[in-house]
């Protein structure tokens, strides 16, 4: 799935998964169709934002206005849509994700002094996989001991956890839609484990 800027003047970001992705249906696909739909979201701007504790509410409100996105104050929750999304990562720490367009970092940096807000561009360092379908939670269950039940992990919840022994952020976009952010260097390994786990349910790579 290609997202974001396709402008030729823009230095095109390379996907870490492009050369391992085979499109089509694989595994034990039943008459009901594949249990899972898997695709890569690319290219995305992924920015980690931390604020100085003393200036936290004020700075956050201003950035929130600038970007038109709310920063969740509740642990393990997210806000926003596919266009721009913010995820709670830890105290005073958030992840901002959007399809790559402008340089978000520059946009924020020009308005705020560096002692108020700390930004780390992770766009080059993360790969994003979208997992969708009726068996998506089953596959997540294989990878981590987090309670993936709908009652505790519903829409607009996120967790930063160890998934298949890799550090991963999982964002619940909808009841059975999940975005998984992993370190780019492990993306290929993660992709292999994910497909192995999905095989018994049948999956489609889009």
């Amino acid at each position: 799935m290609t997202e974001g800027n396709t402008n030729k003047n823009f230095l095109r970001r390379q996907s870490a998964l492009a050369h391992v992705i085979n499109y089509g249906q694989f595994g034990n696909v039943s008459l009901n169709g594949p249990g899972l739909f898997i695709c890569e979201r690319h290219p995305l701007t992924i920015l980690q934002l931390e604020t100085a504790k003393s200036k936290n509410p004020q700075t956050l409100a201003e950035i929130s206005n600038l970007l038109n996105v709310e920063f969740p104050q509740t642990n393990n929750t997210c806000h926003g849509d596919d266009e721009r999304r913010s995820l709670w990562l830890g105290p005073n720490r958030w992840l901002i994700v959007e399809p790559e367009r402008d340089c978000l970092q520059t946009l924020i940096k020009t308005k705020f002094s560096s002692s108020d807000v700390f930004l780390t561009d992770l766009s080059h360092g993360r790969s994003t996989v979208r997992l969708k379908g009726r068996e998506a939670r089953e596959v997540l269950m294989k990878g981590s001991g987090v309670d993936w039940h709908l009652n505790s992990f519903g829409t607009d919840h996120c967790v930063h956890t160890k998934l298949f022994d890799l550090a991963a952020t999982v964002d619940c976009r909808d009841i059975d839609v999940f975005d998984i952010y992993i370190a780019r260097g492990f993306a290929e390994d993660f992709w292999d484990i994910l497909l192995d786990s999905a095989e018994e349910f049948g999956y489609q790579v889009d």
Binding site: N75, N76, G145, D147, V159, H160, T161, K162
Partner: peptide, 17 residues
């Protein structure tokens, strides 16, 4: 498997700690 209840994140595997 030990489950440690992180005051911020909730119950997690001890392998995350």
């Amino acid at each position: 498997m030990l489950i440690i209840n992180c005051p911020l994140c909730g119950p997690r595997d001890h392998a995350e700690f």
